[in-house]
Design a protein around this nucleic acid. Structure first.
Lengths: 202, 202
DNA sequence: CGACACATGTAACACGTTACATGATTTG
DNA sequence: CAAATCATGTAACGTGTTACATGTGTCG
């Protein structure tokens, strides 16, 4: 649900045409979200269908420019005022993967953690190299890059944390696989975050 | 592309039926990925279509169980050996939002940062409360929760970092909006991560 | 001329989300 | 009995991804 708002945001500073929007989108995010041109046009179509943008005739060069409608302006304002939804926890693909891998009998989890650590670390080094090389970049790009660095650092720390816990579990001879059974005290994340009742186990 | 592998992982420890898979999936991840039951069946259908699982007749209670095919077993093994893809940077919704908000003339970015900080902090406190309350949880659940904590902490730190940079930019009287123009040195993230050539600005 | 960027679109596909339909079994 | 849970599915929708088709203009 983010390309929509991205385009609305870019259109706030005046009418733009599709190809231009793609360029500015990637420029603002530094390519952190590579955007296919086709997607821009389809999204513009959907925005128009929803009454959030409208075509403003054709350019002197025959380019089709769009502008925000008042509804689109409201929608944008609402988006900017609302924090990103954290009511349901973000899907951390890596964490999910590790959790599920832990249920696989015989899987070499610690090897997986190590492999991932290497990969993430390499990416992190690439980020910091980019940052050093390009310290005078514009603000949006720089902040996006920083967020990636912060995230990658956190991931490395988490992987180290995992390794330690796995090592401890292994040395204690705990079964590192198979279904877990903490009979009482069923606490699930989203049940705790929202205040929703949800069923227990079979 | 993760539910697929999740189901494959769960099926590694023996034939299961749809409803059961949903339960074990949520149990393993502690509800970090609330899974609709319907999705399990459609995904099972796609997995069967792709030859990765096959139905193993009906249960004594009439429940349709599936098992891994050898192809599915290979697929799972490959997944477990491969680190999560970091070739293109993960889409951090919040960072993207902030980058795009920075292009909106007149947007109150620092207010947005503050609002988000409060929201994230509240979530983080909820996580730590959960962790305290449930310190003896099983390993997968505990690690997933830790990853969320690490991630939320990183987000708060990043938001503080943003606030500082924004404050500095504001005090220096720098335009905090409008298109950026660092004429030379066009470096985009994915262009640097992959070794792909990509076009510059118009 | 050939390659490439500019510019606009369409079609097909995969995936996740939600809602709905249906029935059996359990339980207060 | 009514409500909830178990259990299996289907249909519709939104969105993101990729590939394709088409044409103009520019530049070596």
């Amino acid at each position: 649900m983010s390309i929509r708002y991205g385009l609305l945001a870019l259109l706030k500073s005046g009418p733009k045409y599709g190809y231009q929007l793609r360029g500015e989108f990637e420029e603002a995010t530094g390519g952190a979200w590579p955007l296919n041109v086709g997607q821009v046009y389809t999204t513009l179509g959907r925005l128009e269908r929803d009454g959030l943008v409208e075509p403003v005739g054709t350019d002197e060069d025959g380019r089709v420019r769009y502008r925000l409608t008042s509804a689109g302006d409201d929608e944008l304002a609402g988006w900017l005022q609302t924090p990103v939804d954290r009511s349901s926890p973000p899907r951390n693909e890596l964490a999910i993967k590790l959790a599920l891998a832990l249920t696989v009998p015989g899987a070499d989890i610690r090897r997986l953690v190590q492999t991932q650590r290497t990969a993430t670390l390499r990416t992190l080094q690439e980020y910091t190299r980019l940052k050093r090389k390009n310290a005078d970049a514009d603000l949006p790009w720089s902040l996006v890059l920083d967020s990636l660095i912060f995230g990658a650092e956190a991931e490395v720390r988490w992987l180290d944390h995992c390794e330690a816990r796995l090592a401890r579990a292994a040395s204690e001879g705990v079964r590192s696989s198979g279904p877990a059974e903490h009979a009482e005290d069923e606490t699930s994340l989203d049940a705790a975050l929202e205040t929703t009742e949800r069923p227990g186990r079979p």
